[in-house]
Design a protein around this nucleic acid. Structure first.
Lengths: 339, 339
DNA sequence: CTCGCGTTCCAAAACGTTTCGGACAGATTA
DNA sequence: TAATCTGTCCGAAACGTTTTGGAACGCGAG
């Protein structure tokens, strides 16, 4: 490995000067700098990140802890997100250090270790929860971090989020424009922060249209484990069943699709269905689903950008960024048939 | 941050002794060791990986470079694989350092930097190619590495692979058992090493059954960009069209499904279809597809295990591990109807 | 008593970098 | 002329760890 010392010897200068030349300090002559740069590139010098970060300045790495059990239903979220993070990090000369935690507590321990040990300069936090112990911890330990997902009432840290409220609202508006008036709602687990924003979009849209909020049309806190069959059956057997359904995740939409089909209900003829996420799942069902699409790679990229800005420019105020999802219309939605 | 020095001061010993006590050297008295361990845990001491790796022993990290553009068609492979790697690494006290490269050359540059700079102790290589420059590079630079995917004729490095030959062969045998005799084949890009092993399974099975290898039934080197519609149409318009098709990737199977459906061909009544990978895609098509399943998380886990063994136990011979895929039978395959 | 040996401990160097505090020369100012 | 400033450069310390090469001690053997 070619070190600073090698460059210094070859250039006939001290290690200090070489370091300062390479790091754009202004107390080195332009000529000297040019010489150093030439020698460095001739020798194929690359700075040793490890030594750098030991020294205390910067590790040139950011940390991310992901859940240990990647449920298949989340589809390709993580890999798209990670691809976004790493490619943006790479451009800025940062690496991504990845760990898994079996639960939130383990995740927190990893974050602690990563920042305490200076293995990373800052961390990325995902899946923000309504009351998130990890966030409290990171705030109080003064570790630079950016979250994917906001938490209601906490604007003292940086986050990037998808505007789920507008996303759902757009979807409901679209269903309204097709003539639907009884629109059911399938919600994701309430522990997740985004769940509430999506719900808000549903409420807003109904309110704006002057429609009642009918609790019987709402199923909440659905995770993959919960059996959708029974609640969906109950929903569709109401005196006035919904003519459209908005599912806040692709896996819920796919499950609902199977459930209603088993009841002999056709999509979209008898029931319109809108999904959220637009993963491969919603694209390959029969019929392919209308879905609210969020660009996960873009999200990862934005999160990384914000974090790196935060790391390089010191003491920036928290930044908040809302990314707009888009409605992808496919064949699971249709105009309300004249009854 | 609590350092070795803090522990030493608190314990009334030298840094050296504390270090050696904690690292199970045998030149420290049992009593002293116990004392040191108690003080260390009281103070909440955790070794600084950065300093360790600077010192030259071990970085406690492994590297992985993934493609920059994660095609959505690969579905959730990367995230499952990464989840397997990180959870196994975590148990052994290793982190995963992740980068992206826009092409193989960029990937190689990252690998070089990671190992040269001692940022990682070893690396994982994925998507082994038929003639893989990255592998030649890693071999000659004596960097410990494990590949996911073997390369024909090179057993001088450790790899973990899926037995695609047996996988495809099992699938073909299954189709044969259903009475099919004209079985078409849709192959993945030939640059990938696994493509050839899968192909071999196809050939083997036909040969064992005493069937001819009919080139007209074979479509090769199909990537997602290539339009499947035309070649599939040509295939199905043969005088004796295939009654079953084995597609070496889910995305190919899904594409083929759409293509044949547009020709008015029903699956599985007119044509049986087998996919490879068993991602969510093949599970959510209509009909859900029979697919050869590989456990990506397990693969990641095995790769990590092998690499870490290699790192801890020095100078082990290369290890080779073949993981068996399994055939998941769903509704895209049916017995050959009596003509 | 002296020598050698085993046990237990430690000081110091090393890894590659950044940074603090100054050194030195030449130019400018009083 | 002497003092101050400016532009360049550098020595040495520091980051937290591991490792090398002893040192100090007690003990049994010669």
């Amino acid at each position: 490995m070619v070190t600073l010392k090698d460059v210094a010897r070859q250039a006939g200068l001290s290690v200090t000067t070489v370091s300062r030349a390479l790091n754009a300090y202004d107390d080195v002559a332009a000529e000297t700098r040019a010489h150093v740069e030439r020698v460095a590139s001739e020798l194929g010098y690359h700075p040793n990140h490890i030594a750098r970060s030991l020294q205390g300045t910067r590790a040139y790495a950011v940390g991310l802890v992901i859940p240990q059990l990647v449920h298949r239903y989340v589809d390709s979220f993580w890999q798209e997100f990670i691809a976004g993070v790493t490619s943006t990090c790479g451009e800025a000369g940062f690496d991504l250090v990845l760990c898994t935690g079996k639960d939130l507590h383990a995740e927190q321990a990893h974050y602690q270790r990563l920042v305490r040990t200076r293995r990373v300069d800052g961390v990325i936090l995902c899946d923000a929860r309504v009351r998130d112990q990890r966030i409290s911890f990171l705030r109080q330990s003064h570790a630079p971090f950016v979250a994917f997902g906001r938490v209601l009432g906490h604007d003292d840290f940086s986050w990037v989020d998808v505007d789920g409220t507008t996303g759902v609202r757009t979807a409901v508006d679209y269903l309204l424009s097709l003539g639907h008036r009884r629109i059911g709602y399938l919600g994701t687990p309430t522990a997740f922060s985004f769940t509430h924003f999506r719900h808000e979009g549903y409420v807003d849209a109904l309110f704006a249209a002057g429609l009642d909020y009918d609790e019987r049309l709402i199923l909440e806190d659905l995770d993959v484990a919960s059996e959708l069959q029974a609640p969906i059956m109950e929903l569709m057997n109401l005196q006035e069943p919904p003519t459209a359904l908005i599912a806040c995740a692709d896996y819920l939409a796919a499950g609902a699709l199977r459930a209603v089909r088993s009841l002999g209900i056709r999509v979209p003829e008898d029931l319109s269905l809108v999904a959220f996420d637009d993963t491969l799942v919603s694209q390959h069902t029969e019929p392919p689903m209308t879905s609210i699409r969020q660009d996960n790679q873009l999200i990862g990229s934005r999160v990384a950008t914000v974090l790196i800005q935060q790391l390089l420019g010191d003491g920036l105020p928290p930044s908040h960024e809302l990314i707009q999802p888009s409605l992808v219309v496919r064949q699971s939605t249709a105009p309300l048939p004249a009854a």
